[in-house]
Each structure stands twice: as C-alpha cells, then as structure tokens.
C-alpha cells in the first residue's frame, strides 16, 4: 500500500515531464516550419521602408498597399482564375480516371495488371524536366500552347498515377464482399462501383482530390513551359515578381501574392486532414 502510494506520484511526474518535453519539441518544430509563412504574411503588410529596416521590425503600422496594388492588377487576378480552372480541371480529371484505374488494379484479376500498374507508377520516377520539353514540342505542333486544357492534361500525367495508387490501396482495404453482395443484390460491376464503393470511399476520394488540386495549384515547371499569357498560373506570376531584374524584387508584392496563393492550400490541407481521419476510421468498421 505504502509502496503504491510512493511509486504512483513518481510515475505520474515522470509522465508529466515526458509530456512537457514532447510539447516543447512540438512547439520548436512548429516554429521552424511556420516561421517562414509567418514572416511572409507579416512582410506582406509592411511598407517598403519597414521591409528593409535592420534589425527586422515585428511591430509596425500595417498597410494593405501591396494587396491593393497587386490584387487589382488584371494579370494577377486572371492568373488566380487560371490557377483555379487548371487545378480544378486537372484534379477532377485525375480523380475520375485515376479512381477507376485504381479500382481495376485493386479488384480485377487480369494477366499483367500488376506489371502494368507498376509501370504507371514508375513513370512518376521520370523527372518532370525531362518531359517538359517534349511536351512543349508536342503542344506546339498541336497548336495548344497557352491553353487551359494543355496544362490540365499535362498535370494529369503525374496526377493520375498518384490518384490511381492512393485509391488502389484504399479499395484493397475494403472487403471484396461489399461489391459481391451488391452484384448479387442486382448491380452490375459498374453499378456496384458507383452505388456502393464510391459512396463508401467518399472521404478518401475527397482527400485525394484535394491533394491533387494542391499539387496542381503550386506546379511551376509545366506552367512556365506550356503557357505564356492567356493560361498562365499564379506560381508563374510569383516567379516573375521574384525574378524581376528590371525593378528589383518587390518584397511587399511578392509576399502579398504569396499569401493569397497559400491561403486556399492551407484551408484545403486542413479539410483533408479532417476527411482523411474520418476516412480511415470509417474503413475500419467494415460494416
């Protein structure tokens, strides 16, 4: 009894210390990762003088000047709209094609299916820079340079394998009997897929869609090579502002546009986290 009374507080204090250490470590890591974002947002509200003050100022009179200037510029707004169109288009196309391909790989017994799947995955190993130039040449020959659809198709080349493999493992975790039951209940394989598998996989589908959209949203290389003005996206604009050798880097503008660009990504990432956890939990119940 005495031993218990003595040992218990000691154990709990050791536990509390471990918890505290973990919190400190967590905060430290978060600071390292979040500081650049914080600094970007802070800078976007500074004027040109405050930006270049040393030591850096944490307290200053905030100004919306950079936002006011750049968010009204037609090219920036147009590029934001382009980015939305391309990210949504590429995301949706990839999720439709990739999900169906992933399902086929997960479920349909076909000679060579596993090899085929691996080959598609391997294609992800090709560095994008190696594809960018051939793609540019093909697009020019077809006369589709600087069009939304060109970027959407280009992004699909790396998004579809990604979606396919994510959804394949998701489907493999679902019991096969679900579709079998649906097929006995009166569905064709397509019916079972759309009426049973897709609704069950919705959390996984949505998070994969959002992941894909984030990847498309922030893509720079293909956008740089395949578009010039009409279909150009926001990462290209940021690169342009950062690399402006005529006027020098406009930090206020750069950080303001950067902040605007990052916000949807952060919101999406938070949504994904919520859905992904829900998706995992739902898969575990099996029905």
């Amino acid at each position: 009894m005495t031993a218990l009374a003595v040992s218990r507080p000691r154990r709990s204090s050791r536990g509390a210390l471990a918890t505290r250490l973990r919190i400190v470590a967590g905060v430290a890591v978060s600071v390292i990762f979040l500081f650049p974002i914080y600094w970007m947002i802070l800078t976007s509200f500074k004027d040109q003088v405050d930006i270049f003050t040393t030591p850096p100022k944490f307290l200053f009179t905030p100004t919306l000047a950079a936002y006011a200037e750049y968010m009204q510029r037609a090219d920036i707004v147009k590029r934001l709209i382009n980015t939305v169109i391309v990210a949504t288009g590429a995301g949706l196309l990839s999720i439709v094609v990739g999900t169906m391909a992933g399902y086929a790989l997960a479920r349909i017994r076909l000679r060579g299916a596993a090899t085929f799947g691996l080959l598609i995955l391997l294609s992800r190993g090709v560095p994008p820079i190696a594809l960018a130039v051939p793609m540019f040449l093909v697009a020019r020959k077809l006369g589709v340079i600087d069009k939304h659809i060109t970027l959407i198709l280009a992004y699909s080349t790396f998004l579809i394998p990604y979606v396919m493999w994510l959804m394949r493992s998701f489907f493999m975790a679902l019991p096969r009997e679900l579709e079998e039951s649906a097929m006995i209940d009166g569905c064709s394989r397509y019916g079972a897929f759309f009426k049973i598998i897709v609704p069950i996989s919705l959390p996984g589908l949505l998070s994969t869609l959002i992941f894909s959209m984030i990847l498309a949203w922030e893509e720079l290389l293909f956008a740089l090579v395949l578009t010039s003005r009409h279909a150009s996206t926001i990462p290209v604009a940021i690169a342009g502002i950062a690399g402006d050798t005529v006027n020098g880097a406009n930090w206020a503008a750069l950080t303001a546009v950067g902040t605007i660009t990052v916000i949807p990504v952060v919101v999406f990432a938070l949504l994904v986290q919520k859905w992904l956890i829900k998706g995992l939990a739902e898969g575990a119940t099996k029905g």
């Binding site: 009997e177 679900l178 039951s181 006995i184 609704p199 069950i200 029905g287």
Partner: peptide, 14 residues
C-alpha cells in the same frame, strides 16, 4: 435469383 449471406456480413456501411 439467389441471395447470399457472407461471413463478414458485407453490410453497406453508408
């Protein structure tokens, strides 16, 4: 025109 009951029930979870 058959009905089947599976070992893991295979109820539609949604």
């Amino acid at each position: 025109d058959i009905a089947m009951v599976f070992q893991n029930y295979a109820l539609y979870p949604h």
